[in-house]
Amino acid sequence: MIKSELVLRIAEQNPHLYQRDVENIVNAILDTIVDALARGDRVELRGFGAFSVKKRDARIGRNPRTGETVPVSEKVIPVFKTGKEMRLRLNGASNGASGASGAVPTGASIAARAAD
C-alpha cells in the first residue's frame, strides 16, 4: 500500500471529508513525526511502535568497488521499534485474543472498524 492508497481508503471511510483533507491529515501526522525526530525527540504510539533517533559516530568508510577509504561524518539515524500489540498482531494473536486483550489499548482497530 502506498500513501495515495492509504488516503483513498481513509477517504472512503469518511465520506464527509474531501480527499485533499485526508491527504493533509496523513501528511500532518507524518510531518509531525519527522519534525519530532529532527528535534531529537521520541515518538511513542502505543499499540503501533516507537520512533527514536540514534547517533552514529564519524568513521572511516571504504568504497567497496575501488577500495578507497572515505571519511563518513557523524550522523543521526531514525530507528523504529515495533510495539507489543503490533508484534502480537503480526503473529496472529489478534484473531483469538485482540478483541479480549484489555491490557493493550486497541483503539486504532476499534476506530477503523467502527468507521464502516
Binding site: 492509504l6 481513509i10 469518511n14 491529515i25 496523513v26 501526522i29 503501533f48 486504532a108 482497530s109
Partner: peptide, 10 residues
C-alpha cells in the same frame, strides 16, 4: 482520524 490512519496502517 489519527486512530483511523494508524489502524489502517496496522
Amino acid at each position: 482520524l489519527v486512530e483511523t490512519v494508524l489502524g489502517e496502517i496496522c
